[in-house]
Nucleic acid binder design. Structure first.
Lengths: 334, 334
DNA sequence: TTGAAAGCGCTACCAA
DNA sequence: TTGGTAGCGCTTTCAA
């Protein structure tokens, strides 16, 4: 493999000049730059990442910690991952993929050994045990999600409380007065997942605000889970006229179950989903939905990491305003 | 951050001794080892990855190239990814995630800059344009999939031809003589995806072998795609008594469509799926299926990469024998 | 069983 | 506008 000295020799300049051509950190005459670039191309030169990291304390790598538990929605996770990798590349960074299996130790390992410049973490819990470790690292981190105490750490997410409010506002506007929330699987609540709690909190509050009677239930996956959830709702608040579904896995079985029971959407029951756009339109009925902007969130997470690295930004929390798109699943109650 | 010299000083030994304690590449007295390890723990020392890579030409990182096109089955991809990351960690390696967007340039970038020790690639095409580049790299690569000319490159995959044969053997054993293959989406065939072609080839051949009349059709996603596919099958070979489904996305809409048409599984029509175990059992009817052993393939891909790095293995192709598990979707034709 | 020291390839400071 | 060079923190040979 060619080294920087090989390039320097071929171009008739010094190694430092080659380095500066590459980094753009000091002015280089057009002529010199051209000669150097020709040599680089000629020799198919690629700077050695390790040497660069050693000399500059910069790796051009971001760590991305993804949840790989059974109860997460894989396609949505992948949307985040894709967005992060793509955005990272536009900033000339690569992505090191960590699963949460290793927990805090994994973070300390990659950060301690200077493998990455910054960390991005998904699936944040309200009292996330990783937070103290993150605060100790010399690298900045960005959370996708918002813990109870985000102090000193950057956070980005959809404003789930506002999203819940938006769903209820929409339904209340149609005249609904009895609404149920079909929430994520119980495990998601049990471990205090940030977004689930924030959505639930916003839902309860907005119900009071709009004068809507509301129930909320978690929902296990599959047809059985959906039936149990509906039964629970019915026991607590009979004759709901609308459902807010914050559970992608439940969507299809739920619509199925409603059809089997002869309850038509939106004639007999209105449905608002909280999910990525593409899953909302892929359902048997095109669902009115509040978008989960995975791509935007992933991109912004990378942008925030870059801001922190450049010293341009402080670690703050950023919540994206909800977008509710009307489709074919909401109508006035009969 | 503590350096190796800090550790050496704290333990009262030389830097090289610390290095050897870490690598185990030369005998160290128990007593010295203990002192060094205590110092390492005390100072929370982590070797600098870049420095290590520079000195040793080893990064302890694997590149994983994943397809992120619209027409891939995301949950299956994630199974491979999870398996690769987990296996990599058991070998003390991390995983750098690349998407195929960058194509050959991305491979040359991470390999050329010595960011990784080896590469693992998914979604291989028969005439994969990346092969020449891979052969030029100094790092070994492992393909998940088998191109037409795998010469000089390690490959690992399910034996899809044998899998197709196994499905037909099972159906022929039940007495079926008219069988259809519901294949992947047309785009998968169009780009010459290795596994799709190998399955199709095996299917045609085995049909002849077992005296079964067979049709094969690609199948677009969604209910409409499934109906079009079934129509095509019916036009070419009416009254098939069994379906082999090599398309996870189509599975649910297909079973739905059959139910709507009043064709019961397995009474009226038998179904064999080719998919991961968990999706086979998650369907409305527990499907007899040939397993796609994503976890095993991912793990073996890492193992092969390690073998190549250690010089213990040559780049060869390894095909896993199929496993067909009988469940509730196959019976004799009426 | 251990130590000393020469690089690995690059960046960035100091000079010119 | 450019060059020289001292490290960055580690591995590994050579010596003892």
């Amino acid at each position: 493999m060619a080294t920087i000295s090989d390039v320097a020799r071929a171009a008739g300049v010094s190694a430092s000049t080659v380095s500066y051509v590459l980094s753009g950190r000091r002015p280089i005459s057009a002529e010199t730059r051209a000669r150097v670039q020709a040599a680089i191309a000629e020799l198919r030169y690629h700077p050695h990442a390790g040497a660069r990291a050693l000399a500059s304390s910069r790796t051009s790598v971001l760590a991305l910690v993804v949840p790989l538990r059974a109860d997460v929605n894989v396609p949505v996770i992948m949307q985040f991952v894709t967005a992060v990798v793509t955005a990272a590349r536009t900033h000339n960074h690569d992505v090191l993929l960590l699963t949460m299996d290793e927990g805090t130790a994994g973070l300390e390992r990659v950060a301690g050994s200077t493998m990455v410049d910054a960390l991005i973490l998904m699936d944040v819990e309200r009292q996330d045990v990783r937070l103290p470790a993150l605060r100790r690292l010399k690298q900045p981190s960005v959370l996708i999600g918002v813990p109870d105490d985000p102090d000193g750490i950057a956070c980005i997410d959809l404003d789930f409380a506002a999203t819940a409010r938006e769903c209820l506002r929409h339904l209340a506007g149609h005249g609904h007065r009895r609404v149920a929330l079909v929430g994520p699987t119980p495990a998601v609540y049990q471990r205090g997942t940030s977004y689930a709690d924030r959505f639930l909190g916003g839902f309860i509050e907005a119900a009071a605000e709009f004068g809507v009677r509301a129930v909320a239930r978690s929902c296990e996956p599959g047809g059985d889970g959906v039936r149990a959830c509906l039964a629970g709702i019915d026991a607590e608040l009979p004759d709901v006229t609308a459902l807010v579904v914050h559970n992608e896995e439940a969507l299809l079985p739920l619509l199925d179950e409603l059809r089997i029971r002869g309850r038509r959407v939106p004639t007999d029951v209105s449905v608002v989903a909280v999910c990525p756009r593409d899953v909302a339109v892929a359902q048997p009925v095109r669902l009115t939905s509040a978008d989960i902007p995975a791509h935007e969130v992933g991109t912004l997470a990378v942008e925030m990491a870059m801001g922190l690295l450049a010293g341009r930004a402080a670690p703050t929390t950023r919540l994206l305003a909800p977008t509710l798109v009307e489709r074919d699943s909401c109508a006035a109650p009969r």
